[in-house]
Design a protein around this nucleic acid. Structure first.
Length: 434
DNA sequence: TCTGGGGTCCTAGGACCC
DNA sequence: TCTGGGGTCCTAGGACCC
């Protein structure tokens, strides 16, 4: 048995904890560069704002409907997530943190009324962190996801499902005919693993509801679509096919990419940008105890804007697997030199670390120069760098090629409406006035 | 008249997730 | 003026092997 705990409109809810005046108003959180909406309050959804809607197209709602838009404050969301996750963990013996706002809880071995227990945990998370959650319970992860959708929808749209399923929904204890009614009332596209493409194909074949999908023959689904969708069908029937991942597996690739605040055409700012990206990615790489064998660099023009198009990337092999910032930055810069062409309005660049392996498996190297053990020294340097950045904040120590001034850099991102780091920066802590 | 069978590895692209 | 970032898995097809 699994539960899925999911923060409602998570980023917006995080912002509301510290600015209660945002309650009951249409609020959205924007992506990096204030580009598009990536979180929406219920009121904003009711205005018809879609996930990913470009800000410049919905901006008029500020004046027309009192819409409030905030720049993403990922530092805040990450910290609030940690708090929510540690409380959600109390629901059962195992937890899989699936995303910044969702975790699956393994409920096997938990005695007593699970629905009741989930309600108490939900209340605790709300009281202690201020974040409202939905909790879904089911026999498989896919059913828990579905139950979670029902819990949130029943709350947001009264009448869509029985009121008793709002906030906390346990599909496993539902009488068969009630379960059938829920499955029949839910569109197939809401199922975890069924995206736009497959939903359209299913609907074309007359498979419109979750109930229709669950009734398909798994073998047919496999041959017509894929083994992935077959697993989904089996999961909907209560047969677990998707592993529960207790401990996060190490990443197989690590990326750091950004859109620029404005188009960039010169090589120098591009070098700065990919230097910083490589440095950040190297930190993530060391944090998971891995080394990379290849580094990919890319840059491209806007897919939306007219003008000459440019889209290039190159994979730079590393002489040996490494997690050394200097070597990775060097590779990134070399790659950028290779792909750079003047005359294009580039709006995005990035790097990816590929071919990752545990650092314990790195082969030693014979030092032909007979000098000191340079590899060990570099390792110490990296640990010191990570230590300083961990203690004094990101970017305290970085390579010089990534530039000096975070604000005047040509490629820096736009972020005009970010709230303070309420929970992670001592000078941003809210002050209560008498 | 008329070109085997079986396997692995790699890559690009598609689809999905949040 | 203006459209995010970071992942995973699967499949098909090509190259290559014996």
């Amino acid at each position: 048995m699994y539960a899925l705990v999911d923060g409602n409109n998570f980023y917006v809810s995080c912002e509301r904890v510290f600015r209660p005046s945002l309650n009951n108003r249409p609020v959205i959180v924007l992506s990096n560069n204030d580009g598009c909406a990536i979180a929406r309050s219920n009121e904003a959804k009711a205005l018809g704002i879609k996930m990913g809607a470009p800000w410049f197209k919905i901006r008029h709602l500020e004046d027309e409907a009192g819409l409030v838009a905030l720049s993403a404050n990922f530092t805040l969301y990450g910290d609030m997530s940690d708090r929510m996750m540690s409380l959600a963990a109390g629901l059962g013996p195992t937890q899989e943190i699936y995303s910044i706002d969702e975790s699956f809880i393994g409920m096997d071995g938990v005695r007593g009324d699970l629905t009741d227990r989930a309600r108490r945990i939900r209340a605790r998370i709300l009281t202690w962190t201020g974040i409202p959650c939905g909790i879904g319970i089911g026999q498989t992860k896919t059913l828990a996801k579905l139950a979670n959708f029902v819990a949130k929808t029943a709350e947001r749209k009264p009448g869509s499902y029985p009121d008793a399923l709002a906030q906390v929904c346990n599909l496993a204890t539902l009488p068969a005919e009630d379960l059938a009614a829920v499955l029949a009332a839910t569109e197939v596209g809401e199922v975890w693993g069924v995206g736009r493409r497959i939903a359209a194909q299913l609907q074309e074949g007359g498979v419109r509801t979750v109930q229709d999908l669950a009734r398909l023959d798994p073998a047919t689904v496999r041959s017509r679509w894929s083994v992935v969708l077959e697993r989904t069908v089996r999961e909907l029937r209560g047969l677990p096919c998707i592993e529960f991942e207790d401990a996060p597996a190490p990443k197989k690739e690590i990326a750091c990419t950004r859109s620029f605040g404005r188009p960039v055409t010169d090589l120098a700012p591009l070098i700065e940008a990919v230097s910083e990206f490589a440095g950040r990615a190297a930190e993530k790489l060391r944090a998971q105890g891995s080394v990379a064998s290849q580094l990919l660099v890319f840059a491209h023009t806007s897919p939306y804007r007219p003008g000459p198009k440019y889209h290039r990337s190159v994979v730079v092999p590393l002489r040996r697997p490494t997690a050394d910032t200097a070597l990775l930055v060097h590779a990134a810069v070399a790659g950028m030199h290779q792909i750079y062409q003047p005359g294009f309005q580039l709006i995005k660049a990035g790097i990816m670390l590929l071919d990752l392996a545990p650092d314990s498996r790195v082969q030693g190297e014979l030092d032909l120069d007979g000098g000191e053990d340079a590899t060990a020294e570099r390792g110490k340097l990296m640990r010191v760098m990570d230590g300083l950045n961990g203690r004094y904040g990101k970017g305290t120590v970085h390579v010089a090629s990534s530039g000096l001034d975070d604000y005047r850099r040509e490629w820096g991102m736009r972020q005009e409406r970010r709230t303070p780091h309420y929970t992670t920066n001592i000078s941003d802590i809210p002050v209560a006035r008498a």
